[in-house]
């Protein structure tokens, strides 16, 4: 129990301190673009009504979820294939590195051309950024599976499917999860960016519109909400990570 309380204090400690600092530092502010934190917090409840949650926040998160899930599925599937088939790896590696180097915001006008301006475009933008870390990390993970483990699988004639599911995938999973974590951070950013072009609703869209119409406290409240959303997603991810990779984390602590 004490351990949990201590942990909670550690986790919430720094943010609370920063929040308090911000509060007092901005208390008497008359600057238009840096209003007092108290005003932003007051604005928070007024701005983020149930209707806004339904019409802006939830659709954004849903699009992020769809794009992220698609990236995970495609990234792992393609990564497994490319990682296991040697000539495929050598053939695609330069193309993949090229594609991953192009920043997605630059691609948005191009994506708009063939994906239109609706939800499809936004999900496509998210995928265009999230796919690469997952794909490339999966390839790296697959290629770094211990050859002795693969020999064992071959010697016992486990078969391609079982080798893939029981050995390659779990063996590569630490790297895959790393890729998925990177992709999550990228996904949140792209969720906002995709809504800066040709959008009609969304969290990022709302923040940008607040800025455009000089509703600055509301804009800040949106930014705060976005930050909290990112933190919440990271926390959820950490739980999933611990569940899936508990053997990995325990092995590393117990071996060392």
């Amino acid at each position: 129990m004490i351990v949990l309380v201590r942990k909670a204090l550690l986790v919430l400690g720094l943010p609370s301190v920063l929040f308090a600092l911000w509060w007092f530092a901005s208390a008497g502010s008359t600057s238009f673009y840096f209003p007092p934190l108290s005003e932003i917090v007051a604005e928070f409840g007024e701005t983020w009504t149930a209707e806004r949650w339904r019409e802006d926040v939830l659709p954004s998160v849903a699009r992020l979820g769809a794009g992220y899930a698609a990236s995970c599925a495609a990234g792992v599937a393609l990564g497994l294939l490319i990682g296991r088939v040697r000539w495929l790896f050598h053939a695609t590696e330069p193309v993949l590195e090229f594609a991953r180097a192009v920043p997605p915001p630059v691609l948005v006008p191009v994506i708009m051309l063939f994906a239109g301006i609706g939800d499809g475009m936004k999900v496509a933008v998210i995928i265009s950024g999230c796919l690469w870390p997952i794909l490339l990390n999966t390839v790296a993970g697959v290629r770094s599976v211990d050859p002795v483990q693969l020999d064992t699988a071959a010697a016992y004639r486990l078969g391609r499917f079982r080798t893939l599911t029981a050995i390659v995938l779990p063996g590569a999973s630490p790297r895959i999860v790393t890729g998925m974590r990177q992709a999550l951070a990228i996904g949140v950013i792209l969720m906002v960016i995709s809504e800066m072009f040709a959008a009609q609703s969304g969290l990022g869209f709302a923040i940008v519109q607040f800025q455009r119409s000089y509703a600055i406290p509301a804009m800040w409240s949106g930014i705060l909400l976005l930050g909290c959303l990112g933190a919440a997603l990271a926390a959820v991810f950490a739980c999933v990570d611990r569940a899936v990779l508990h053997w990995y984390h325990r092995q590393r602590t117990e071996e060392a």
Partner: peptide
């Protein structure tokens, strides 16, 4: 011409031949 049936192999590197996720 591939791993034969009814044959088992024990490798030197036991640490790497067992699967740590199982």
């Amino acid at each position: 011409d591939g791993p034969p049936e009814d044959t088992a192999v024990v490798f030197q590197e036991y640490g790497r031949s067992l699967f740590p996720w199982m």
